[in-house]
């Protein structure tokens, strides 16, 4: 079922059940986000992508990334209320991740108040506890990291803060991290992440780095096939050559 909604005065068409953030983006409205990721399921926890929904006298603040549009609504993406709440939320995030340049930039861009009275958690921290890394790792099926403890003690870690036996060093967690908080050290032979060092595997033909030995082996178990030691390009060439061998003359 199609619906017409109003975003900052502009009429936008969407399907019932579509998330508001997607509708807004499609129609050219920029709403800042941190914990939203197109390929990872809904979270709605950073609370930065808020918008105001007005219907008559009533107004409601909702998180656009997980808010399904189900009726004709009037949306304000940048009302005074939104600005104030988003500013304070970003200011709180900055106290959590004072070393993050992304958060610092957003604070500046969205007029977050400076709150010298509040103490930062640790000067060098960049993690905003958005949980995307945990989601990515879980989605992959490895589940090597998790949100440990709860409330104000919450952190992202491996069990007992020890190098994880299940981690395959694929660095998917680092790729989805919005603040670049997960430390990955890599040279031509090795990659270190979450306290463990992995040997990197290179393409048998061209030598380009594929992934860690563990990640290549893990991908193979998912496909139920022997590990692939060729990069995508070389693999294509190999297939092409095989075809040439069969059909070519």
């Amino acid at each position: 079922m199609s619906l017409n909604i109003s975003i900052d005065g502009k009429t936008c068409t969407c399907e019932s059940g579509e998330f508001l953030l997607e509708v807004a983006r499609r129609n050219g409205f920029y709403i800042p986000t941190l914990c939203a990721h197109e390929s990872l399921s809904e979270q709605g926890c950073c609370r930065v992508c808020i918008v105001e929904i007005v219907s008559g006298e009533r107004s409601q603040i909702v998180v656009s990334c997980v808010y399904p549009v189900e009726r004709a609504i009037e949306v304000l993406t940048n009302s005074e209320k939104v600005k104030a709440l988003r500013g304070m939320t970003l200011a709180l995030l900055q106290k959590l991740a004072p070393a993050s340049s992304l958060i610092a930039g957003m604070c500046k861009a969205y007029g977050a108040p400076e709150l010298p009275r509040l103490e930062a958690r640790a000067d060098d921290d960049t993690c905003i506890l958005c949980g995307l890394c945990v989601k990515a790792c879980a989605q992959l099926g490895t589940g090597a990291i998790a949100a440990v403890n709860r409330g104000i003690e919450k952190k992202i870690a491996t069990p007992y803060d020890q190098p994880s036996a299940t981690c395959i060093g694929c660095a998917s967690c680092a790729q989805v991290c919005p603040t670049g908080s997960i430390v990955v050290k890599q040279d031509a032979q090795e990659r270190s992440i979450w306290g463990r060092t992995f040997t990197l595997l290179a393409c048998d033909r061209c030598g380009v780095i594929l992934d860690t030995t563990e990640a290549v082996a893990y991908a193979a178990t998912l496909r139920d096939a022997p590990p692939e030691h060729l990069c995508p390009d070389c693999r294509k060439q190999q297939v092409a050559q095989a075809f040439v061998g069969v059909y070519g003359k």
């Binding site: 709605g44 926890c45 950073c46 609370r47 930065v48 304070m88 939320t89 709180l92 995030l93 106290k95 959590l96 009275r117 509040l118 103490e119 958690r121 905003i128 506890l129 949980g131 949100a147 403890n149 709860r150 409330g151 104000i152 003690e153 919450k154």
Partner: peptide, 23 residues
């Protein structure tokens, strides 16, 4: 109590409680 019992998932509750408690 709430700072200990908050699940810690969303920013305003977790961080708000952290700083409120300190103040």
């Amino acid at each position: 109590f709430l700072a200990e019992e908050s699940c810690g998932k969303c920013t305003p509750c977790r961080e708000g409680l952290r700083h409120m408690l300190r103040i």
